[in-house]
């Protein structure tokens, strides 16, 4: 890797040491049609870790993920993915994406779906079988995707994202609608992937899942509330319960306490928005 001596020596938090971040955003602004959806985000996704992207539905999580995957245009600011501008063709073999509503072919079998994406990434049939097994769908290989339950269907989508063995995996609400056992199982798999060097960006609106991440991005109404670790979130939000802690951070931002410029900005924007609404 490109680690220059000064990089490794800098006394930065744990997640910034070592390899450069997998994703780096600077004043990232994204518009959907004419309305601004992401308002100048600054953040980084540490390499080889599990980063959680958390926020209520409608906060811009999916848009951010689509922008990282290079299918959504950037209005202003910069977004670098694996040290290249987001959307550059060289990235396509290196990234894997699971969309929110499972984008798979419902009229063909589970294995044929995964095989198709395997061949696009130059992987073998054995890789496809492995990916199907990894999401716990062994025994369902020959089943038509349309005949699966909702949770199984979305796992086909996950397998299609895993099969390319990407360096960066972007997963949009991968555990939605899964039973608790499977959910734990998947998070363990994410952990194993990260231990093997894969970077994961996983979105969720279930705060409880935040505790399983190394780093958290808290998104609300297209603003980045904070980037921190689960422990920092508990501390900042003054609650052991992550849901409460998230609320705590929102309230803190709104009342403009604490001198963090990002949060003060946010409080001002909230006030402005309220005044406009009157």
């Amino acid at each position: 890797m490109s680690g220059s001596p000064s990089d490794t020596a800098s006394p930065t938090p744990a997640h910034a040491a070592g390899p450069p971040p997998a994703v780096e955003a600077e004043r990232l602004v994204v518009r959907l049609r004419r309305s601004e959806v992401l308002h100048g985000l600054d953040f980084s996704v540490p390499s080889g870790r599990v980063t959680g992207l958390l926020g209520p539905s409608g906060s811009g999580k999916s848009t951010l993920m689509r922008t990282i995957m290079g299918v959504q245009r950037i209005a202003s600011g910069t977004l670098r993915v694996l040290e290249r501008p987001a959307g550059s063709p060289a990235l396509r073999p290196l990234i894997g994406y699971m969309t929110q509503d499972a984008a798979v072919y419902s009229d063909i079998t589970v294995l044929d779906n995964v095989r198709y994406f395997a061949s696009l990434h130059g992987r073998t049939r054995a890789d496809a079988r492995e990916a199907v097994a990894a999401v716990g769908l062994s025994g369902f290989e020959k089943r038509k995707a349309a005949d699966l339950s909702g949770g199984q269907f979305s796992r086909v989508s996950l397998a299609c994202a895993l099969v390319g063995q990407p360096k960066l995996l972007v997963l949009d609400e991968p555990t939605v609608g899964l039973d608790p056992v499977l959910r734990v199982d998947l998070w363990e798999r994410f952990r194993a992937l990260a231990d093997a060097g894969t970077t994961l960006l996983v979105s969720s609106h279930v705060m409880e899942e935040a505790s399983r991440c190394d780093s958290l991005l808290l998104l609300r109404d297209g603003h980045l509330l904070a980037q921190l670790t689960p422990d920092e979130l508990r501390e900042e939000g003054r609650s052991q319960d992550l849901e409460q802690a998230f609320l705590g951070i929102i309230q803190k931002g709104e009342s403009g306490q604490q001198g963090e410029p990002g949060q003060q900005n946010l409080a001002q924007q909230y006030k402005a928005a309220k005044e406009n609404a009157v």
Binding site: R66, M69, G70, V71, P89, R92, P93, I95, Y97, T99, D101, A102, A103, V104, Y105, S106, F117, L120, H121, C160, G164
Partner: peptide
């Protein structure tokens, strides 16, 4: 409409 096209566009195809 199913999103598979957008997904394909993120692959090397």
């Amino acid at each position: 409409t199913s999103g598979t096209l957008e997904r394909l566009m993120t692959t090397p195809i």
